[in-house]
Design a protein around this nucleic acid. Structure first.
Lengths: 343, 343
DNA sequence: CAGCATTGTACAACTCGCGGT
DNA sequence: CACCGCGAGTTGTACAATGCT
């Protein structure tokens, strides 16, 4: 502690020696296991404090648990993901588990690598968002470690899911816009590799629901889906194409808030010449609520979803085997970014 | 792989048996160590593929490295932190290291716990942002594992630092505002526990520079520092107090963009009655550039800082002993949130 | 007898079942 | 019976030692 350049960090053996007990006894105290007297516990704890001892998680992981749960995220830029993490973190207060986040590399399809990095590190459970990964691969992962997936509507054998009711959320958005009198409503979303090719993902369900509801409203001819890579430049350019092109939509339903913000930016930059375009997002992130942004959005409480994911994971760690699929009800928050069309 | 309900995951022993070689040989090809023939490498890799073998990082950690570098962050809500992580992630492409993020719990002074969680997990290096932690404690940590701290101007013995030139950045802000004709310029920042009590932190330096520059400009009487906990409600209330109270400032210099956004919110909510208040932030996060926000801010490139932190850490892993202190030059981005005072 | 490739084996730090007082 | 300790087991690393041209 006070001495510098300590030779080596203390191990369980050092603690045992100082406390005058066996290594196994120290282990029991550490794990709060059955069969330790108060006197023993006190002696051991005193030695632990004296040496500043901390158990190596690596060594623990060889036989027991690592008391670590890992969460894989596509990136940290989307504030919805921060909500998830913050919900998970606060649900974990008081539990002996430490949360670690593994951001997938910017490249696509890096989700697998990040999930594997977590399992390689012997985490006790994994939470992940990976629309691009095959279900069969996830089932294999789940056979080895408790797994909860976010944002997938899969019918699974081995893992749990927490997901918003994306069809209902999309209905809320479209009924709102249709009710305002909009007809030319475009849907801006992620590439087809995570929508039409992955009909069980959030964005797959949202796109399908958009198409269905538009058709049901007799607006099949107005269906317009723009699939783009989610980097700002591409989204911006795609939106400008939409605004500056023929048959400009009067409303854009963006698949999530981060996209919606870029749409708002393009609309703002286009100025009055761009016409009056309503914009709706999804996730109701904190920035949507900002009065200067005031973005109409669908709330599905990322905090709550993150917390529930932890609940399900801890259930699984405790032994549950059958899959649970939790669906979170969406709410529409109407703000200034959506209004009746002027034309 | 294809078979389900595999009994147990493959170990290095299984690989050795299938390949018909010794365990040591397998270890060598895994580590790319000296002294393996091409034939050996091929046999082993074939066995690895066949078994779907992946080395346990826990076991590796017992003797060698974990190929993991950990980054501790106070939270994931501040987009500047996302920039840091994204800079670190892309700098790490091609390196054999995996980045994991440990968010500190919302409670204050949880930074120590999160850093310890990383060292307990035997990471090969740590990057951290922890203004509240004692330097002596960090020196102890750094004696055991390579450490790079962000946002601290410490004169260190064992760890490196990457930090913006906060005095220069503050000067850019104040010269800009003074040049516009502002006199009543308030500074909204974090609690004194991380400013006046920690003069080596970013926010400590910014506050001190604010006081000095104001005084040098003959405005000692106008110095007004508001120290608040950074949760939105508190910041909002403090800003309203400022706006609605006597001697309303004509400009507010917020210590970082996340705070500045809440200030903008309070100003927007106050409406014309709140008067014309210029707002300046710090970090130039992506949201500051949004045309609906258009926040004047100081850029110190989080991406660059995150990348440099990785560079320094890898240097240290490779053996460097003496401390390096890297200072990043700031740039002021003037946008619509700051303008000449009307009164 | 160099100069390789390859293997044997001593660790590393903890957990846990079982046997002993 | 309540407590405690022995010792094997966990998976990989790395160095010394062996075997082979």
């Amino acid at each position: 502690m006070t001495t510098q350049a300590r030779t080596r960090a203390a191990t369980i053996n050092d603690v045992a020696r100082v406390a005058g007990v066996s290594r196994a006894a120290v282990s029991k105290v550490l794990r709060d296991a059955y069969g330790v007297s108060d006197a023993m516990r006190e002696k051991v704890n005193a030695a632990i404090d004296e040496l500043g001892y901390r158990p190596r998680v690596s060594a623990r992981g060889m036989r027991g648990a690592t008391f670590t749960i890992g969460i894989e995220l596509p990136n940290l830029d989307n504030p919805f993901f921060s909500d998830l993490v913050s919900g998970a973190t606060s649900r974990l207060l008081g539990e002996p588990y430490q949360l670690i986040v593994a951001p997938a590399s910017p490249a696509n399809a890096e989700g697998e690598r990040a999930i594997q990095a977590l399992t390689d590190r012997q985490v006790d459970g994994v939470i992940a968002i990976s629309p691009e990964v095959e279900q069969s691969w996830l089932e294999d992962v789940a056979a080895a470690v408790p797994l909860v997936m976010l944002g997938r509507h899969d019918d699974t054998r081995e893992y749990d899911t927490v997901v918003g009711d994306d069809a209902a959320g999309t209905r809320l958005v479209l009924e709102h816009l249709l009710g305002l009198g909009h007809r030319r409503i475009a849907h801006l979303t992620l590439p087809e590799s995570v929508t039409v090719e992955r009909p069980n993902t959030t964005h797959g369900v949202r796109e399908a629901a958009y198409r269905r509801i538009m058709a049901d409203a007799g607006l099949a001819g107005e269906i317009r889906v723009v699939n783009v890579e989610p980097d700002p430049e591409t989204v911006y350019a795609a939106t400008r194409d939409l605004i500056d092109g023929p048959d400009r939509p009067t409303a854009v339903f963006a698949a999530h808030d981060e996209l919606a913000l870029t749409v708002l930016r393009a609309v703002a930059d286009a100025g009055p010449a761009g016409g009056d375009v309503s914009v709706v997002g999804y996730d109701d992130t904190w920035i949507a609520r900002h009065p200067l942004i005031s973005l109409t959005s669908v709330n599905q409480s990322g905090q709550h979803m993150g917390g529930r994911a932890i609940d399900l994971l801890l259930d699984r760690v405790a032994g549950r085997k059958h899959p649970v699929h939790e669906v979170v009800a969406p709410r529409l928050l109407v703000r200034e970014s959506s209004r009746a069309p002027t034309a």
